[in-house]
Amino acid sequence: MTLSVRDLSFSYGDRKILHGISFEAATGEVLGIAGPNGCGKTTLIKCIDRIFEPQGEVEFAGKYLEDMTTTEVAQLIAYVPQALTMGMAMSVFETILLGRRPYIRWSVSDTDIERVSMIIDDLGIQHLAFRSMTQISGGERQKVMIARAMVQDPSLLLLDEPTSALDLRHQLEVMELVQRVSREKQVSVLMAVHDLNLASRFCDRLMVMKEGRVVALGKPSELLNETLIRDVYGVEAMITRQSGFLQVIPVCPVRGILA
């Protein structure tokens, strides 16, 4: 199921955030969105999930999202925000179960419980299942949020900087989880990323944004170079390859350029 975004624009009041964004993402593809703070990554993700109402077209699996009900959208697309809101005293199990909201009217079916149990088992977080969300670490919480999104049975997973607050190990674990989900379940993933090194390792393609526009789109290894990083981020960088991985080493901000 392909995602096609055509000429998507969005404004907060008078301030235009997104200027005619167009791109496509294939089934099972991990598409990263990179770019400086404020370039519109998060806004783009929220527009695609219809949390905001944008102008332009978002077509997924042959249907226009604006013609669908919120529940229909929720059965296709799941979203994990950057910042986690800490609500009530909910356990890990209950939090993941919330992802079944698009399929549940009131009572929880055996299937719902089965799905939640399976993903907890799969992620190896059985020991946390009945702990409160406030008692687990940030990395564990991020996994729980992705698990919640996964039991929503989405065909498209939207992630907003899923690794930005995590330690090295959790960064890798979360990224591997995302990659595995997209491969095994043929889920398309659209993910805002700050860390270009992680992005180049785990994203099939990378979309680079600046000031609400797409400035580059392609394979990370072909896309990332010193000129692009200087233009987009206003940073002098060195790009090296070590043990098969692309490495972006930021050196210094470029004087006179405002990113």
Binding site: T70, A74, L84
Partner: peptide
Amino acid sequence: NAMGQGDQVAKSMGVD
């Protein structure tokens, strides 16, 4: 329950 996760997450789960 869904709104306990924040408004935008609740929206993404289909809650008005």
